[in-house]
Write a protein that binds this DNA or RNA. Structure first.
Length: 507
RNA sequence: UCUCCCUUAGCUCAGUUGGUUAGAGCACCUGACUGUUAAUCAGGGUGUCCAAGGUUCAAGUCCUUGAGGGAGAGCCA
């Protein structure tokens, strides 16, 4: 008999197989037990029928608790009703490890409780699906760059200098010298691109910002390609084909995962097919304040519509609660009452979210109306701007004052820098930031002084401009933000096995 | 660092205008039911109401301070 994994069940229909795994859930009827088993590769329902197996085995099946581990023998049967499309009729079970009172049940839990139990939470179906999508994204990213003849190289984690002086860094001790954990591998990426042509780094990045928001982590993974002989237009073309490629790959290879996550993947088809809108910063600013329309509508009109929609939804939800409460008052069976109570709770949660929107949309409108030309796009501005499109939006040609010191100045418009930000749709905000790099040594020295950075630490970087300097460009993709958007998650903390964020160092 | 919100059973939450014995569902145990999809049904008990102080005849409920968490701003991928 062959030992197999759940993801390969389709090749063994009608055959007897052996799997090892854990029990995630159990349902029972008279003389029958439905065991939901996971083995890391997938989930499958196994049926233990009292009439078909040894009494000892049946009793063992009956007594199995959540997350106990065992080896199971049985016959693979096709069943369209099941998530994977198959089930196993049990012949024999051997217990390996008991599990008493597993803390994470198949019922809702709060965020704090789940985060405290992250080491166990990872076993749940939803987390399994997210981690599989993350894995596939990483695979697709490597495939894309390798296919495009990029060389993967690694930047150091310990650095002696801050790339962008403003951000807070984690300070550590490096043989009695002060060192920082890297917040970007980009400067080293530029040096490596001058050696290898096209390179990409893929590693962890550390930011000590005391940010407690749904899109921040203190430790996250970043992909940073850097290309010699590239200008910003070529850079934007590359970013667009890169995103199209990884979205297509993950859509085709993670169907079961998206089903578990209840992620509507139809938006991916647009992304794969249509050209991304490219807006200059000037255009973006005009759209924001309502001077320029998108598809015949201004941002203000769109948001005001959204706001009315929210009010309408809240009203409808409240009516539904009222009618459910009246039914309960009138007297119903226990099962019906539970069902209604459950429904009320769900609607109440909905209303909480809608109330949040009700509070926040007027603030967005105000913030958009009063957007000042020359300032950076705030979180709400990004949401407002992307609300106008179904695709990722590329914003380029930024006022140079608000961009990093190494950003290439536009010859024709010296107040602009040739940077590009990619804003993901559905409110996910900036997933990519990049641009063409300054090659003019004098301008660069001026910028380093302007930002009050220690010139000595940048001597090696300036060398890149002294010996065969060429136009070059690159970008950085935040892996976790990408995963959050692709899976449509509420919070970035679910996108990485063990998130490190302000106030969270364990488990 | 700032603003707003939350903290009640192992978990998720309800608790009205301050009122006398603090509630529900789930989890857990027992039983019923041959195919369940968070299975269902009957029964079984559980509390430092986050902490400290204050107002009051009376505080889970009101006030002050603190702790932890959440959402947002700033900053950012």
């Amino acid at each position: 008999m062959q030992k197999i994994t759940i993801q390969n069940l389709d090749k063994y229909v009608g055959k007897e197989v052996k799997i090892s795994g854990w029990l995630t859930n159990k349902r029972s009827g008279k003389g029958i037990e439905f065991l939901i088993v996971r083995d890391g590769s997938g989930f499958v329902q196994c049926i233990a029928d009292e009439n078909e197996i040894d009494a000892k085995v049946f009793n063992l099946a009956k007594s199995l608790s959540q997350e106990s581990s065992f080896e199971l023998k049985g016959t693979v049967v096709k069943d369209e009703k099941q998530i994977g499309g198959f089930e196993i009729h049990v012949k024999d079970i051997k217990l390996i490890g008991e599990s008493v009172s597993f803390p994470i049940t198949n019922k809702p839990h709060g965020v704090e409780f789940l985060m405290d139990n992250r080491h166990l939470w990872l076993r749940s179906k939803r987390q399994w699906a997210i981690m599989r999508v993350r894995n596939r994204l990483i695979f697709a990213i490597h495939n894309f760059f390798q296919k495009e003849e990029f060389v993967q190289m690694d930047a150091p984690f310990f650095t002696g200098n801050a790339v962008e002086g403003t951000t807070t860094l984690f300070a550590t001790d490096f043989y009695d010298d002060k060192a920082y954990l890297s917040q970007s591998g980009q400067l080293y990426g530029e040096a490596m691109a001058m050696a290898m042509g096209k390179i990409y780094t893929f590693g962890p990045t550390f930011r000590a910002e005391k940010s407690k928001t749904r899109r921040h982590l203190s430790e996250f993974w970043m992909i940073e390609p850097e290309m010699a002989f590239f200008d910003n237009d070529m850079n934007m073309d590359l970013i667009e084909s890169f995103i199209k490629y990884i979205v297509k790959d993950v859509k085709e290879n993670c169907k079961a995962e998206f089903e578990i996550l209840e992620r509507d993947t139809s938006i991916f088809d647009l992304i794969i097919k249509d050209k991304f809108p490219r807006l200059t910063y000037d255009q973006a600013a005009k759209i924001l304040i309502g001077e320029e329309k998108v598809n015949g509508k201004t941002t203000i009109e769109t948001l005001e519509n959204d706001f009315l929609e929210v009010l309408k939804n809240i009203e409808e939800n409240q009516k539904e609660i009222e009618s459910a409460e009246n039914q309960i008052k009138a007297g119903v069976k226990k099962g019906q009452k539970n069902y209604l109570q459950n429904k009320i709770d769900t609607i109440k949660n909905n209303i909480k979210e809608l109330d949040e929107k009700k509070k926040v949309i007027p603030q967005w409108i105000e913030s958009a109306k009063h957007f000042k030309y020359g300032s950076d796009l705030g979180g709400s501005d990004e949401t407002v701007l992307t609300r106008m499109f179904d695709l990722p939006v590329m914003v380029y040609n930024w006022p140079h004052e608000i961009k990093a010191f190494y950003m290439k100045r536009d010859k024709e418009n010296p107040h602009l820098a040739k940077g590009v930000d990619v804003l993901a749709p559905e409110g996910y905000g900036e997933v990519v930031g990049g641009g063409e790099r300054e090659t003019n040594e004098e301008l660069l020295i001026g910028k380093i002084n302007e930002h009050q950075l220690p010139m000595k630490a940048f001597e090696w970087y300036l060398d890149l401009r002294r010996y065969g300097s060429v136009p070059h460009a690159g970008f950085g993709l935040g892996l976790e933000r990408m995963v959050a958007w692709i899976c449509k998650l509420k919070h970035i903390r679910e996108t990485i096995p063990f998130p490190r964020m302000y106030g969270r160092l364990f488990p």
